[in-house]
Design a binder for these strands. Structure first.
Lengths: 158, 158
DNA sequence: CTAAGTGCAAATGTTTTGCAGAATC
DNA sequence: GATTCTGCAAAACATTTGCACTTAG
């Protein structure tokens, strides 16, 4: 059950909604899960616009598919400090949160079960039925904090 | 220092940047802090467009001021599940996080120091210099969870 | 064969920007 | 008096949608 590939999982989702797994949607899923990296709609549009099979996928279709992939639980959004949002894999990848560098924009992932436990407790107290959470920590990353007074800063002592 | 009113705090911020506290900006700050409620740019535009003093503030000025207010640390953004974002007070109001109901859109605020402590620890481990964080918990609120055994709830047993 | 999906281009909704006149320091 | 702001309208973006054609099931 947890062993389905993203595309299988997506087909299953579409089936339950009476929708179809088309060639375009397959191309998109394949491209999205080809590497674990954050991306936005524009990135993806560029990647599938010049697909090697000669088949191209249009802008509108990418937007429509992204929405489906979110609904299917395959993707989720993460906010960036500049206000823009990017997508990341939400399937076949452990729950995690992010440290977001305001200087270089780096998204650093981390996991922590204690936080989930506390969140669960809070939800209980509020009679809130949790489906998920998102924690974003803003600040400056170790690299950007490093003293700039080096030639090629090899040792960033933090 | 923590005793400045929002508008004083804003003026201070503007001074350090060699910018001015104009009448329009005053109107905006006043309106924004008149009540502690979440709002978006459009809401605020409507509210200051028909200001009682007879003075109106334009759309462009509101957008420009919102950005300044964020930079000044007076406002911060919170995401809603539908993808839209709203602003809330980030000054003169305790640090808190949100439970966000996917059904009715309610934003329920809560505070928890344990989470901050854990976040601080994680930042330490990553050499990350934190400036703040945002935790959003998604799910269904108590109200929407409540038994639908009312008269006109067409009993859709699922 | 039929319902659903696609691409296109036009429409939308939101935020930003150039500029001339107005206001502030 | 010089610099910063404002309002306007146009521009810039990002995303959505109507429609005729194509395709999956």
């Amino acid at each position: 059950m947890g062993e389905l590939t993203p595309i299988e999982k997506f087909r299953e989702f579409l089936l339950t909604k009476g929708e179809r797994l088309t060639r375009e949607r397959s191309i998109i899923v394949e491209e999205v899960f080809a590497k674990h990296e954050h991306f936005d709609a524009e990135d993806l549009i560029a990647r599938v616009a010049r697909d090697k099979t000669g088949r191209r996928v249009s802008r509108a279709t990418v937007y429509r598919a992204l929405k489906l992939l979110e609904d299917a639980g395959l993707l989720r959004k993460v906010a960036r400090p500049n206000g823009s949002e990017v997508y990341e894999h939400d399937y076949g990848y452990p729950q995690h949160d992010h440290l977001i560098c305001a200087k270089c924009g780096a998204l650093i992932e981390f996991t922590n079960e204690a936080i989930s436990a506390i969140v669960d407790k809070i939800c209980n107290e509020h009679g809130f039925n949790k489906s998920g959470h998102r924690l974003e920590v803003y600040g400056i990353c170790a690299k950007c904090n490093a003293p700039p007074n080096r030639r090629h800063r090899k040792l960033d002592l933090v």
